[in-house]
Design a protein around this nucleic acid. Structure first.
Lengths: 204, 204
DNA sequence: TTACCCATGTAACCCGTTACATGATTTT
DNA sequence: AAAATCATGTAACGGGTTACATGGGTAA
């Protein structure tokens, strides 16, 4: 479970309530991670049981009491241990690729429509992070507690954007290839070009 | 659940047992999807209950009987419907990015080690699909039942590779940036360059 | 003789989302 | 008057992985 460690990580910034942790997620890492309150609250409880966070209660009237969670030394150690530990590469899991894989089951025109739609979805998301999110970082949001952290935040944003860009380019290229295959009346020529090692196919 | 539809898709090729479906996964789509037998068997049962597949039994001695599943007309329709239906863009969910996001919590040297390891993991996977998988497609594996299908298979492979390449490039670039920040003694200059819109940052 | 292939499954558990429940305060 | 914010949670369900259970046949 990475959520545990994501929470520990956020708590290195400062002690927070579950509600505030959710806000932190939404305002800073939502481009590569997300969590619902219904998942955060129980996780905080297990974190407390493991001794990685301490809970203190701030009494409120006319509202549920605030439960503020702070990292313990053990929690800080656990996070440091986890961060350093290498992990296997994330494997891709994209249901859209199932549709593409069985693309031969439908007319090329329909496949082109699918690809265009998917590309537009990706473009919307990319446009969002190119503008709104970048501004947030540049403006130095509350989530930042040091300039160095801003650099790492930017790197994660860059990764998300690199992914979207690769996706969009792939959609574009696939659409062109399919259009060509309609004109040429067969997939053989394209297949040959793809597997013969065009520049795009080299290992970086 | 996309597994249901992935199974329906595979069964368009020919009727198969659960065991054979697993082999199909392993030999053709494992670069973007996977499924365990313990998940496939119950799913086949629900598929049968929904009337999307028909089961026939091939009796065997000294081995559990084979249960061969074949698409019904309803199943074929359902798959065709599902394929055409647009879907929201998959959101990225990468625990490694949590580590990067909190990279300021550890010495830059340690972060560089992490990035290098992660890059090497990605390179291994990329090298694998650049060789083994490509050969499989070129050689026309048993999973292929038409040349056109080979084209779409290739496209999914290209997507997976594009993703890995983007990841590797990002690791490389991030490492360079961090090294620079060590020399310059501060992250400000780099941050400025990142957010001022270098060529790499344009929307494609 | 060790290990992998064939061939079926069940059970427990983990992670995550959606829906449900409560209810005052503030903004539009 | 309606909607969003603050603040806590529980319950049900969906999807996936790991472990467990069985057991003959075949290749290293």
């Amino acid at each position: 479970m990475s959520l545990k460690h994501a929470l520990l990580g956020i708590l290195t910034v400062k002690p927070m309530t579950g509600y505030e942790l959710k806000q932190f997620f939404d305002s800073s890492v939502q481009h590569f991670w997300n969590a619902e309150l219904s998942q955060i609250y129980p996780t905080l409880k297990t974190l407390e049981e493991q001794g990685w966070v301490d809970k203190s209660v701030e009494v409120q009237d006319s509202r549920p009491n605030k439960k503020i969670y702070a990292l313990t030394d053990g929690g800080r150690d656990e996070f440091a241990r986890w961060v350093r530990q290498p992990m296997p590469a994330t494997d891709m899991r994209d249901p859209f690729m199932i549709k593409v894989f069985f693309g031969a089951e439908l007319p090329i025109e329909d496949m082109l429509i699918l690809l265009r739609r998917q590309m537009e979805e990706e473009q919307k998301i990319l446009a969002f992070s190119e503008t709104v999110l970048r501004e947030k970082i540049r403006g130095g949001s509350h989530a930042l507690h040091s300039p160095r952290q801003g650099l790492f935040w930017t790197l994660t944003l860059e990764m998300a954007n690199a992914y979207r860009r690769a996706y969009i380019e792939w959609c574009d290229r696939s659409m062109h290839l399919l259009e060509e295959s309609m004109l040429e009346g067969g997939a053989t020529a394209i297949e040959k070009r793809l597997s013969d090692g065009e520049p795009e196919l080299r290992v970086v």
